[in-house]
Design a protein around this nucleic acid. Sequence first.
DNA 1: AATGATATTGATAATCATTTTCAATAACAT
DNA 2: ATGTTATTGAAAATGATTATCAATATCATT
Lengths: 150, 150
Amino acid sequence: MPSHKWRKRFRGSGSRWTAPREAILNLLSKTSKHMSAKEIYQALLRIYPGIGLTTVYRTLDLLEKMGFLNKIPLGSGENKYELITESDQTHHHHLICTQCGKIIDYTDFVDEELELIKKTEKSLKQRHRFQITDHNIEFYGVCEQCQKRR
Amino acid sequence: MPSHKWRKRFRGSGSRWTAPREAILNLLSKTSKHMSAKEIYQALLRIYPGIGLTTVYRTLDLLEKMGFLNKIPLGSGENKYELITESDQTHHHHLICTQCGKIIDYTDFVDEELELIKKTEKSLKQRHRFQITDHNIEFYGVCEQCQKRR
DNA sequence: AATGATATTGATAATCATTTTCAATAACAT
DNA sequence: ATGTTATTGAAAATGATTATCAATATCATT
Ligand SMILES: [Mn+2]
Ligand SMILES: [Mn+2]
Ligand SMILES: [Zn+2]
Ligand SMILES: [Zn+2]
């Protein structure tokens, strides 16, 4: 468990290093999946009985604010979370199954994409006086398994 | 009120032409805003007292399925709706204020965008065996008014 | 124009994800 | 070891949307 790399980043922020926070970070670092609060809660129940769903929500909020993870709205009102890895494929977008909610990362044409994004952002900033902070690109469809299911 | 152009499109679909449906279509055709169910409900109350919020939701669902309007998830769990105009700027994307939820249409670089989209879609389709049905591009930021507000 | 089958409506209650409240507990600077 | 206060978990509250259901309106057919 090389899980203490996050610990230091809690220092000085006024936030404390607690068992739920460690558990959630460990879980998310072990999976490549994009998980919802409830999924995270249920997965944790096995290794951490007694953890509260409320705590999961609060922790996810905190971790997002600290820049540890991304929150991905599913349109159904449900959100999914993924750890931000400081390693390789940091910038990526998503392919979302509209049937089961599965999310797949992709990095196709990121360079061209970024160029276009940059241009558009600049244009929008000037014309609408928006302070642009982020963008989102995603594709929707039906995954292989859900295609077979009917 | 040239509002009877939709009427015929209800024929044969088994759906009936009703007052709430006409009211909602009229309202949305008069505005360029992207409105939530509640906003639509409240706007209608003045001209159509007694209309139910439930009916608004149901009608919006129906109209979306019939291809009359787009549903835009806000990430906060709230959705906004816009009429699809058969006229000019059909294909566009959105600039969304994260403070007040205001949505602004933009059509910058749509040609380049569509080219990139097409390429990416093809690539994703092959590699992940997804049946891709749609895409979404949006920018987030803070609108001019919300910048002033603090 | 009257009839009848059934699509639609609106009030109410139910869901579902997320947030708020609050008293009990745990983390950590001293 | 101690005290301050951030954090936790249970329970209730919220906000958007959906399900139920009896009453009503639409519209094809007399
Ligand atoms: Mn991802
Ligand atoms: Mn629009
Ligand atoms: Zn799927
Ligand atoms: Zn705004």
